[in-house]
Design a binder for these strands. Structure first.
Length: 300
DNA sequence: CGCCAGGATTGAA
DNA sequence: TTCAATCATGGC
């Protein structure tokens, strides 16, 4: 294949900005009307145009499949949307952002990022990950402003760091979890590739053996890195979404909500989850002051 | 079940 | 300006 610095991926129904800014990935930032980020060792600049997504690489690329895979431009997106339940919350969520997509990330970067995500807001996760890449990643490109772009650090590099060095990236109590995961992956005692060959339930069980990885974080990794479309991460936003949109009059237990989610949203439940998440976070602020904090048994 | 673990942000004093 | 509450997930 010929080396090229740029490519146009002619994709429709794709909202690049919403997708890169929807809490799946933490390393893409807006520069003008383009998105800058690093994938493997390629520093990229992505721009949404009428014709699709234009990619500009800092260095020539011989095969762009890694980008098609990351952006998931080849999937049958219509089928995904058509498989959603035809109810009002889903119609509203899709209407609010019709081109929202799921990405397909590198498992290690995704796992590491979500270990760092626990009890953190998206802005803070971005900061921690940026620190981590600056200190332990490799510089792979200097942009026109002279700002270096870094690769995501390997498990080997993180394993070789001290816990104090990791804590200096502001990750606090998550440092031992990240360190342990990196060591297990670096020494081969945990195989991220083997996860691919498991069914969803086994893969989830396997991931939750890692310290700092509970059901929610496992589901994020299974959905965002391995493409298990049935994974349905339930964080507080999704819990709120399910409660308010599907059980407005009575308080449903956590267990009840998960059971509902597992059956209601169909084979691409993970996509549905992403739409609900985005919908909850971007819709106009609700008048929370008018409603007292939810208490068991009593919900306005 | 209930508490604790950092650190950035928001809102109150 | 300082200070306290809030955020949000897993481990014990």
């Amino acid at each position: 294949m010929a080396l090229t610095n740029e490519i146009l991926l002619p994709v429709r129904d794709y909202d690049l900005a919403a997708t890169l800014d929807s809490g799946q990935v933490f390393r893409w930032r807006l520069a003008g009307n383009s998105w800058r980020g690093v994938l493997h060792k390629h520093s990229l600049c992505l721009t949404q145009t009428k014709a699709g997504i234009h990619a500009l690489a800092a260095r020539p690329v011989d095969n762009w499949d890694f980008l098609r895979n990351f952006l998931q431009t080849e999937i049958d997106f219509r089928t995904v949307l058509q498989a959603f339940p035809d109810d009002e919350p889903m119609r509203n969520a899709v209407a609010a952002c019709p081109g929202l997509r799921l990405l397909r990330q590198d498992p290690w970067e995704c796992l590491a990022s979500f270990i760092l995500s626990s009890t953190k807001q998206i802005v803070q996760i971005r900061q921690i990950v940026a620190h981590l890449c600056e200190r332990f990643g490799e510089p792979c490109h200097l942009d026109e402003k002279g700002v270096p772009h870094f690769t995501f650090p390997t498990p080997q590099r993180i394993a070789a760091a001290t816990e104090a060095e990791l804590r200096a990236c502001k990750m606090g109590f998550r440092a031992p979890s990240l360190h342990a995961a990196a060591r297990q992956i670096a020494d081969g005692s945990f195989d991220l590739e083997a996860i691919r060959r498991l069914d969803y339930a086994s893969a989830r069980l396997e991931l939750t053996k890692l310290r700092g990885v509970g059901g929610k974080i496992a589901d994020c990794v299974l959905l965002f890195a391995y493409g298990f479309d049935s994974a349905f991460p339930v964080d507080v936003w999704i819990e709120r979404a399910l409660q308010e949109l599907y059980f407005p009059r009575r308080r449903a237990s956590d267990k009840r909500l998960r059971k509902f989610a597992a059956t209601h949203f169909g084979p691409h439940a993970g996509y549905a989850q992403q739409y609900l998440f985005h919908y909850m976070r971007t819709r106009p602020v609700q008048p929370t002051h008018a409603r007292p904090k939810a208490k068991p048994g009593r919900q306005s």
